[in-house]
């Protein structure tokens, strides 16, 4: 059920995110799920390096920082010595799909019983809108000024599909926050993701397509439309595994 108020697991503070940024929305959804599952006091999360680096200022449960991309390794250390806790990482596309590719794949392959919230907005936001591994073909960024040309910059990385072939991975879903209906679906996916861990099924991850109006150079409303009209064509929504 959708909630219409600030979740208990979220601190009552304004975030530093730009207007229309998807992070605030996704923060709220996962906090709602943590409230619904009643696990706030047994949750330990790992924040990434990227726009969400200050997540511990917004979440009212234990949260630690990891070096860029090492987030799943830090979560592995936490979960292995505290198997009774809900341990999840929150990672952007740079953290997860570029510098942390090795850590995410091996955490998945080991079947680490952790959950991953993977926020894909196709750019490096914190550093000023550079090209990410997930940047779309033809997209202009600070470091792909001639657009992303596949012959030079390669293809958008579909890391969630890559993860699907790993036997240790229990659950993968790609969702979006572009509309009311998809926001509700995203919340359900986060809940399934956390439940998979609580039931000891192994590695679970939700990839969430999220807007970055600032570095997409468009309004928040146009950004949501871009997800709907362009981004989902490259990154189709739905359950990928599990």
């Amino acid at each position: 059920m959708p909630k219409f108020e600030k979740p208990r697991s979220m601190k009552d503070v304004a975030t530093h995110y730009c207007p229309g940024c998807g992070h605030g929305l996704i923060h709220r959804l996962l906090c709602e799920v943590i409230d619904d599952l009643g696990v706030r006091e047994t949750t330990v999360s790992v924040a990434p390096v990227g726009c969400a680096v200050l997540a511990y200022d917004y979440w009212d449960f234990d949260t630690m920082e990891a070096p860029h991309g090492r987030t799943p390794a830090v979560a592995t250390g936490l979960k292995r010595v505290m198997p009774d806790k809900l341990v999840f990482t929150y990672q952007g596309d740079g953290d997860l799909a570029a510098i942390g590719t090795s850590e995410i794949i091996h955490a998945g392959n080991r079947g680490e019983n952790i959950s991953v919230i993977f926020v894909n907005n196709g750019v490096y936001g914190m550093t000023g809108g550079q090209m990410a591994p997930t940047t779309l073909k033809g997209q202009t960024t600070a470091t792909s000024p001639h657009t992303r040309r596949v012959e030079k910059e390669g293809y958008p990385l579909k890391i969630t599909e890559m993860m699907a072939v790993l036997d240790g991975v229990a659950y993968l879903e790609r969702t979006s926050v572009d509309s009311y209906a998809n926001i509700i679906k995203t919340k359900k996916a986060i809940e399934k993701c956390f439940r998979a861990q609580l039931e000891g099924k192994g590695f679970s991850m939700v990839e969430i397509l999220s807007p970055c109006p600032t570095y997409w150079g468009m309004s928040p409303v146009e950004s949501m439309e871009r997800i709907r009209n362009e981004v989902v064509k490259e990154y189709p929504l739905g359950v990928i595994k599990g």
């Binding site: 959708p2 219409f4 979220m10 975030t15 940024c21 929305l25 709220r28 509309s179």
Partner: peptide, 15 residues
């Protein structure tokens, strides 16, 4: 309906 509250990225709307 609360759609505004659900889509708000900043917890700025409560029903």
């Amino acid at each position: 309906c609360g759609m505004c509250a659900v889509i708000c990225p900043d917890c700025a709307i409560e029903m």
